[in-house]
Amino acid sequence: MSAKKSPEELKGIFEKYAAKEGDPNQLSKEELKLLLQTEFPSLLKGPSTLDELFEELDKNGDGEVSFEEFQVLVKKISQ
């Protein structure tokens, strides 16, 4: 996936994966893993990378990643 996506496209991608289980407005760690493996495969170099990335993105510590938290990752990789 190209990092150059419109905000609407990014929101659609986020919602597609977030709706798989639990809260449709939040990504669980498994949903984030699936999204990254599919859309940004070069970001995941191993299991520790996912854990570190999830911890970094989950700013409020609720165990899930909101769209706002996800946007931090998108901004970081599009620079």
Score class of each variant (00 low, 15 high):
30 E>F: 11
26 Q>E: 12
26 Q>R: 14
37 Q>R: 11
23 D>G: 05
7 P>L: 12
38 T>F: 11
63 G>V: 05
45 K>W: 10
19 A>N: 10
48 S>V: 09
44 L>F: 11
8 E>H: 03
35 L>Y: 01
43 L>A: 12
62 D>T: 08
73 L>W: 12
22 G>D: 03
9 E>K: 07
23 D>R: 08
70 F>G: 00
23 D>I: 12
45 K>E: 12
59 K>E: 11
5 K>P: 02
75 K>T: 06
51 D>K: 08
54 F>T: 13
27 L>E: 00
31 E>M: 11
55 E>P: 12
12 G>R: 14
42 S>A: 10
70 F>P: 00
76 K>P: 02
64 E>A: 12
46 G>A: 14
6 S>I: 04
4 K>I: 15
33 K>T: 14
64 E>G: 14
32 L>P: 00
16 K>W: 03
29 K>Y: 15
45 K>Y: 07
67 F>W: 08
51 D>C: 12
35 L>W: 01
20 K>F: 03
3 A>S: 04
79 Q>T: 15
57 L>K: 06
78 S>L: 02
64 E>F: 07
8 E>N: 04
62 D>E: 14
63 G>Q: 06
38 T>H: 08
66 S>M: 12
41 P>I: 13
2 S>R: 04
34 L>A: 15
67 F>K: 03
76 K>L: 02
50 L>K: 11
6 S>G: 05
71 Q>F: 04
21 E>I: 09
24 P>S: 14
20 K>R: 12
61 G>L: 07
38 T>I: 11
23 D>M: 04
19 A>V: 07
13 I>Y: 06
5 K>Q: 02
9 E>S: 06
63 G>D: 11
65 V>K: 03
48 S>L: 10
12 G>S: 10
33 K>P: 05
79 Q>R: 15
60 N>M: 03
37 Q>N: 08
40 F>A: 02
51 D>F: 04
43 L>D: 04
62 D>M: 04
53 L>T: 13
43 L>E: 15
54 F>M: 12
46 G>N: 13
79 Q>W: 05
24 P>V: 10
60 N>Q: 08
40 F>S: 03
46 G>R: 11
17 Y>I: 01
40 F>H: 08
40 F>N: 05
25 N>F: 13
1 M>K: 02
78 S>K: 05
68 E>N: 08
63 G>L: 04
19 A>Q: 13
44 L>K: 11
31 E>Y: 06
66 S>P: 04
72 V>C: 06
75 K>V: 06
36 L>M: 15
47 P>F: 10
6 S>R: 02
71 Q>W: 02
32 L>M: 13
39 E>C: 01
45 K>H: 11
32 L>G: 03
11 K>R: 02
60 N>E: 15
42 S>H: 05
2 S>C: 05
28 S>G: 04
4 K>Y: 12
12 G>Q: 07
22 G>V: 01
9 E>L: 06
62 D>F: 04
33 K>D: 13
42 S>G: 09
19 A>S: 12
47 P>I: 08
34 L>I: 12
34 L>N: 14
57 L>Q: 12
56 E>A: 08
14 F>Q: 00
65 V>R: 03
57 L>V: 06
72 V>Y: 07
70 F>E: 00
62 D>W: 03
62 D>P: 09
31 E>C: 03
61 G>W: 09
77 I>L: 06
12 G>F: 10
37 Q>W: 05
48 S>D: 04
26 Q>G: 09
69 E>F: 02
49 T>S: 12
75 K>H: 12
4 K>F: 11
77 I>H: 03
13 I>M: 14
5 K>V: 04
57 L>P: 10
34 L>R: 14
59 K>N: 12
36 L>C: 05
10 L>A: 05
19 A>R: 06
21 E>R: 04
63 G>C: 08
68 E>G: 07
71 Q>R: 05
73 L>H: 03
56 E>Q: 07
56 E>F: 07
21 E>A: 11
43 L>R: 06
20 K>E: 04
25 N>R: 06
63 G>K: 10
74 V>I: 15
24 P>D: 04
57 L>S: 12
48 S>F: 07
65 V>D: 00
76 K>N: 02
65 V>W: 10
70 F>T: 03
47 P>K: 05
77 I>Q: 05
4 K>C: 02
27 L>Y: 00
14 F>T: 00
16 K>S: 08
52 E>K: 13
12 G>L: 11
21 E>M: 10
25 N>E: 10
21 E>D: 15
33 K>L: 13
37 Q>P: 02
7 P>K: 07
19 A>I: 10
48 S>N: 09
75 K>C: 03
30 E>I: 09
72 V>R: 06
4 K>G: 02
79 Q>S: 14
2 S>M: 15
60 N>T: 08
33 K>V: 10
64 E>T: 15
75 K>P: 02
22 G>Q: 02
69 E>S: 06
37 Q>C: 06
75 K>R: 06
79 Q>E: 15
49 T>F: 13
39 E>P: 00
7 P>I: 10
68 E>F: 07
6 S>W: 01
30 E>M: 13
22 G>E: 03
15 E>P: 00
6 S>M: 04
70 F>R: 00
37 Q>M: 04
45 K>N: 10
25 N>D: 07
12 G>E: 03
52 E>V: 09
18 A>L: 02
9 E>Y: 09
21 E>Y: 07
59 K>H: 12
47 P>V: 15
69 E>V: 10
44 L>E: 14
51 D>G: 08
18 A>Y: 01
73 L>D: 00
67 F>N: 04
62 D>L: 08
21 E>S: 05
66 S>T: 13
74 V>C: 06
69 E>A: 08
17 Y>Q: 01
67 F>T: 02
17 Y>F: 11
39 E>H: 07
52 E>C: 04
41 P>K: 12
51 D>I: 05
29 K>I: 14
49 T>K: 05
20 K>G: 10
37 Q>E: 12
41 P>Q: 13
51 D>L: 06
7 P>C: 10
42 S>E: 15
45 K>I: 06
33 K>A: 14
52 E>L: 11
70 F>Y: 08
49 T>E: 09
56 E>S: 11
12 G>M: 11
54 F>S: 13
56 E>R: 10
37 Q>H: 08
34 L>D: 15
68 E>A: 10
56 E>T: 11
31 E>T: 03
65 V>P: 01
58 D>S: 13
30 E>G: 07
20 K>S: 05
21 E>V: 07
10 L>T: 03
61 G>P: 12
6 S>A: 02
40 F>W: 12
46 G>D: 13
24 P>H: 09
31 E>N: 13
71 Q>M: 09
68 E>R: 08
4 K>Q: 07
34 L>K: 13
31 E>K: 11
18 A>I: 02
47 P>N: 05
61 G>F: 11
66 S>E: 14
38 T>G: 05
74 V>Q: 15
6 S>C: 01
